[in-house]
Design a protein around this nucleic acid. Structure first.
Length: 223
DNA sequence: TAGTAACT
DNA sequence: AAAT
């Protein structure tokens, strides 16, 4: 078996308190394997949450269909359609409020943020992204939250991917950072509005998720 | 405009 | 780069 793109990563530690922390940029860190030991619990929660608010593909305002599927939980959820990007209190599919953000998720996200130097992070919205075969996410900024003092906390589950990490302008060529099952990325402060994205998902199968990657992105949104 | 076409 |  030939070594793959990701085989030189250290083995996952699984604990946010002790997993190895790498600086990516000013205000941005990668915690390798920080949530590995919580993966099955998180995936089980994703199953029950997406039974209430199904994963769905959204249209961008320009009319493009996103290749990743998403859902939300928390007091507000991110949506995109012909009218633009926004956070709203209800799921447009059902008209009902989004499912509550599980307390265990909020605690893990806060612990990750604290490890990255952002004390007191209290997320009120989580975007649940599912990347299937060849799904990707173009370079973008998370800029609809209203509160840019709070960081973004991102959990990776399942198939490995290449995280595209750019800069404050779209023209800066992004670095490609491998993310594997259990990895956590936190960015805020000077890099809070940096462009980022996901390269097309490589083929593969993960024991816990099959041919897909899940990503949980925690935010604090000023309603 | 979190995507895409249409360039180079 | 430009459309929306």
């Amino acid at each position: 078996m030939l070594p793959d793109l990701f085989s030189d990563l250290p083995p996952p530690d699984g604990d946010l308190a002790t997993a190895p922390l790498t600086a990516i940029d000013e205000g941005a860190v990668l915690i390798r394997g920080g949530i590995t030991r919580h993966a099955e619990h998180l995936l089980s929660d994703i199953r029950s949450l997406t039974a209430q608010a199904p994963l769905r593909r959204l249209y961008t305002p320009g009319g493009g269909l996103m290749s990743a599927s998403l859902s939300c939980c928390g007091t507000v959820g991110w949506v995109s359609d012909q009218r633009g990007y926004r956070y709203q209190r209800t799921d447009p599919l059902s008209g009902r409020p989004w499912p509550a953000l599980p307390a265990s998720w909020s605690q893990l996200a806060a612990q990750a943020a604290g490890r990255a130097g952002y004390a007191g992070f209290v997320p009120n919205s989580t975007l649940i992204n599912r990347y299937g075969r060849r799904a990707e996410m173009g370079l973008h900024q998370d800029r609809n939250e209203g509160d840019f003092s709070a960081p973004i906390v991102s959990f990776s589950l399942g198939l490995a991917c290449l995280f595209l990490w750019g800069g404050s302008t779209r023209s800066q060529r992004p670095r490609r950072i491998p993310l594997t099952h259990g990895d956590v990325v936190v960015w805020g402060g000077p890099s809070r509005l940096f462009f980022h994205g996901i390269a097309p998902l490589p083929d593969g199968t993960h024991p816990l998720t099959g041919p897909c990657r899940y990503n949980l992105t925690f935010r604090h949104v000023r309603p």
